[in-house]
Design a protein around this nucleic acid. Structure first.
Lengths: 198, 198
DNA sequence: GTGTATATCGCAGTAACTGCGATATTTCAA
DNA sequence: TTGAAATATCGCAGTTACTGCGATATACAC
């Protein structure tokens, strides 16, 4: 029966996607509740209804759960969004406007939770830099695509670095702020300070 | 006999200093030879003539050996050197000149080895950011001491960030360069690119 | 010389991961 | 429909970094 079984995705893929999401969500919740270090793999596995061994089938490491929430979206969207910017903008302007688009589109309550977890310990704070490093790299290579003149390379490298720096400082400002304003505002301010530095 | 025994330091402290240095050196050598991950604590301990347990009496973690070589010196010298800069310099100039002094004074062949090890794996590259984060923090608070006006804080935070960024890019440039020039030159160039960004 | 602080070490334990190999489930095609 | 191939789940044993506890030895200070 049911000859036209819904087969646009396949049982396998659906289950996989569901399990992945369930584990990621369970993990994030447990981190938020008990703290990152105090949450064992075993606990995450059990709460997700899988065996500890199977956890590693979905995530290579424990902190890939955090990367899952932090990185998904933004990291992949940087290059296309940056390339889609109007051509009359300066490199720095283009990156700034890209970031403004991306944070509005991808940062949500979950990102706030992740941010709080990342800032709960020194080792995690350091690991978060891996994310920034990755974005910096992507921004740089994308900028080089748009402005391929070799003599601009060093300058573009610097642009990528200061832009990610401004991004970091914006997140920092948001974290330290007592009120809660839209993330894009912090970004605007951060880049304004950067441009004022000149 | 020998009533005026040399007692300016004490046997204890001397031994401790010697052992610490021996372990740190052995570790660095093994890392360079076999790679960081392939070097077990047990191997370092054995090659240093101590028990694995005693290793943790000297270093809390394995990568504290890298921190020992990278951080010692520079991290502690940043604040005093920055405060000793002439008062007519701009914040950014002051930080730049501080870095030039420090790299000339503290970076040696060992730092090169450490740099190579740090860049041998993605996880280590990320961990190195902990060092930059620390320096950035120190630079920021020191700048705030010298220019304590609250309305400058945001600007000084940005200065600290771009300065450390320029530092990072200078190290990167040196690593990617085929020839070997004095580190201070890369720094000068990096800050020149930064100032040109304005 | 005696007490106190420091150094060394073994042992048992934990937690994150890896490799191997067994079994079950889904898929694809003959 | 059946049977082979790919994928998913899992247990078990092992490795490595690191911790806590407690024992013993060494240096120091008086």
């Amino acid at each position: 029966m049911c000859s036209e079984t819904i087969r646009r995705e396949g049982l396998r893929e659906r289950k996989r996607r569901e399990t992945l999401l369930r584990v990621a969500e369970t993990g994030l919740n447990l981190f938020a509740e008990r703290g990152y270090d105090a949450t064992t793999l075993e606990a995450i596995a059990e709460a997700s209804g899988i065996s500890p061994r199977t956890f590693f089938y979905y995530f290579k490491t424990k902190d890939e759960i955090l990367q899952f929430w932090q990185g998904t979206g933004i990291a992949d969207a940087v290059a296309p969004t940056l390339l889609a910017q109007p051509w009359d903008k300066s490199p720095l302007q283009a990156v700034r406007d890209t970031f403004i688009v991306l944070v509005t589109r991808y940062l949500n309550e979950k990102s706030l939770a992740v941010d709080r977890i990342y800032n709960s310990s020194a080792t995690l704070r350091v690991r978060k830099q891996g994310f920034y490093l990755q974005i910096e790299q992507t921004v740089f290579t994308t900028l080089c695509q748009r402005w391929p003149q070799p003599e601009r390379r060093a300058q573009l490298r610097m642009t990528a670095m200061v832009a990610i720096g401004a991004f970091r400082l914006a997140m920092e400002a948001r974290r330290n702020d007592t009120q809660t304003r839209p993330i894009a505002e912090y970004l605007q301010e951060s880049f304004a300070v950067l441009e004022h530095q000149l």
